[in-house]
């Protein structure tokens, strides 16, 4: 197995996103590319990544392999790459990950026992969909966070608003007012869902600079799915369980 990126931004974004949820990550490499799926320890959030072979400058994988890494250790190595540096990874017979950063930095990192299970994700329908730029979404999260720990998303017909409510006050951000930055709002059913900023903020910050557009899909009191559209990466899906009135 050998994979070489062109530039380091995509891998940095992926590792940064994964690091918001887990300390140890298991990747699966097949002839088609590299995938990762993992949940935080309390099973509130899940990241599902599919990175196709076509996105790499060079990619070879003769047989399927799983490899586990400590994400903070891997992250430290990846951060040594400049923006334009390629990163090449392969696995040695001694069960070490060989990471070549740029032209001349050759790291070896110990792999860990992979504990991942392949739980398939069910296909669930979503009633509402909002597409907007990731930088706009990041700002909205910041706007809500000053009064609340939770983001409430509400759609009605083809309108949507984001809101938050806390002990000190509340905020409503009407998306119609800045339609220029909103790509699309659609809803089959009026939907309202509340999601924790503790999980949303870090992943949006992690992938935000690399992703142009994001798509939020949800149904009332059901999980939120965010798709980050990153040019070279096939798919980054982030799932977040809702907060519901008890």
């Amino acid at each position: 197995f050998e994979a070489k990126t062109s530039g380091s931004d995509d891998l940095k974004a992926i590792i940064s996103a994964i690091s918001t949820l887990v300390e140890e990550a298991t990747f699966v490499a097949t002839a088609e590319g590299i995938t990762f799926r993992g949940m935080d320890p309390s099973h509130v959030a899940l990241i599902d990544i599919s990175w196709p072979n076509s996105a790499f400058e060079k990619y070879e994988c003769d047989s399927d392999i799983k490899f586990g890494v400590r994400i903070d250790e891997f992250s430290k190595l990846i951060k040594r790459a400049d923006k334009k540096d390629s990163i090449e990874i392969s696995i040695s017979e001694q069960n070490m990950l060989l990471v070549t950063v740029g032209k001349n930095k050759k790291y070896k990192m110990r792999l860990i026992e992979s504990s991942a299970t392949d739980t398939p994700l069910p296909k669930i329908p979503y009633d509402s969909k909002i597409t907007l730029s990731s930088s706009r979404f990041d700002k909205i999260l910041g706007d809500v966070q000053v009064v609340s720990d939770y983001l409430t998303i509400h759609t009605s017909d083809s309108k949507a608003d984001f809101s938050g409510k806390g002990d000190s006050g509340e905020v409503v951000i009407d998306l119609e007012k800045d339609i220029d930055e909103i790509g699309e709002i659609s809803s089959k059913e009026d939907s309202i869902g509340t999601y924790s900023l503790e999980y949303l903020n870090p992943v949006v910050k992690a992938v935000g600079t690399t992703a142009g557009q994001i798509t939020c899909e949800f149904s009332s009191a059901k999980p939120l799915r965010i798709e980050f559209k990153v040019a070279n990466i096939g798919r980054i899906h982030f799932y977040l369980a809702p907060r519901v009135e008890s």
Binding site: S42, H43, V44, A241, R243, V244
Partner: peptide
């Protein structure tokens, strides 16, 4: 206050 749910109950139960 709203209570945090987990993904298991929506996806795998």
């Amino acid at each position: 206050k709203p209570k945090q749910t987990g993904l298991d109950e929506f996806f795998w139960n």
